[in-house]
Design a protein around this nucleic acid. Structure first.
Lengths: 223, 223
DNA sequence: TCTCTTGCATTGTGATCGCAATTACGCGTC
DNA sequence: GACGCGTAATTGCGATCACAATGCAAGAGA
């Protein structure tokens, strides 16, 4: 296969691959525990194994993919109760902090954007479209976090979502999307609108708390 | 150059390269802002550019190396006041938490190990051996954190050190090693010995706090 | 002397190949 | 029918090559 790339290209192939796998993980399209291989991913995406290797290294560094130290073989890490507890704790620290910072910098256009995304979230819930819900929910949170203007903390939050993502889908599969979400999003939007940092912090903390509690229950049920 | 590798090897080359660069960064042997290249690193380490690429991707994912999005060229990120503030905050959350967990699981052998490392830290300070101090101080903290048995949080802490490491050396170069350290290590050891989680948390928090304050002052002085 | 241009060296990226090791599979035997 | 063993296929790793793009520096022109 001769894929010539005479491109004055914007985005490198390995970045596209990274993003593709990342999306697949965040929305849980790849099941936890499932093994993957460089060549299989490469074939699936129609590229050579090389950029896949690069992307996979990044994801492994972010602990979104696990590498069996004996085999050197790849798999999507499964979520133990212990891991979940640590990830919950970390999320409950960073994400409310980001929300609080975002509140201080919020404006009308952000509020409008969030309302639009939240409408999409609700629509996805109504339709029971899990893929769409996962994507929209992620978009909602990170539209807020991005506004915080805190690069380092935002990256931490991104890493944590990446690690939890694959498992959220499993939980949804069990409890069904509708039962899962009490609407803290509206609360968060209101706080941002009022530039109420503490309110935003509480709203996001509550949102996460509830979600993680349900995940904990699901994990225990499975184990 | 034909470097044949007929290995039934334990550690892959790219891991060794990763560890080499990581150590260089943590101990600050590579100056912040300095540009590096795959081929130069490869030549320096006597390997092909390939495993260096892998290692660099990992480090970039951990934000220990920056990639200029236009150039795609590598550099050691320089530390802005803003970045430092976020990293301080994050460290002040994770590391005391790890210390508290470690205290609950501490035993006599850990205490002995820490005393030995701390003696090395003091020795390095006495001799003014910056490299040795950086290494020993890192070893001290992570001997504790490792004991916490919290994989995820420990990895977070590791990533944060990696991001701050290059700059600590700069600070040392300015203020001199001796003026920098009030000895909170002894305090931490005592708390661990007594399995006093809160005490360990406070000791580590104080240790970090002081260190980061001095770094903040140094950053402002430079800028 | 300054500036612009041209040419060369260096850089990251991706493809392809070979190697060693592990895994998977099928055949033969009990 | 079940178990072992040997072969084939798959996998990750590393080297090398080709290529486009960028950076750098030297030289030409004003």
């Amino acid at each position: 296969m001769k894929t010539r790339k005479p491109l004055a290209d914007q985005t490198a192939v390995h970045d596209q691959v990274y993003e593709a796998i990342r999306q697949a993980l965040i929305t849980g399209r790849i099941a936890p525990g499932k093994g993957v291989s460089l060549r299989s991913l490469a074939a699936e995406l129609g590229v050579s194994p090389m950029p896949v290797r690069d992307a996979v290294r990044r994801l492994a560094a972010e602990r979104a993919l696990a590498i069996n130290p004996a085999n050197k073989r790849l798999s999507v890490p499964s979520l133990s109760a212990d891991r979940l507890e640590q990830l919950s704790l970390a999320r409950l620290w960073v994400e409310p902090e980001l929300a609080a910072r975002a509140a201080a910098r919020a404006d009308a256009s952000l509020v409008r954007q969030l309302q639009a995304i939240d409408a999409d979230v609700d629509e996805a819930l109504r339709l029971g479209d899990v893929d769409r819900y996962m994507t929209a929910n992620h978009a909602f949170h990170f539209a807020i976090y991005e506004r915080a203007g805190a690069e380092v903390l935002e990256a931490m939050a991104g890493g944590l979502w990446l690690q939890i993502g694959p498992f959220m889908r499993v939980v949804f599969g069990r409890v069904g999307a509708d039962g899962l979400v009490a609407d803290r999003h509206a609360e968060a939007i209101a706080a941002l609108k009022a530039k109420d940092s503490d309110g935003a912090r509480r709203a996001i903390a509550a949102d996460l708390s509830e979600g993680m509690d349900k995940m904990r229950a699901a994990v225990e049920a499975i184990a």
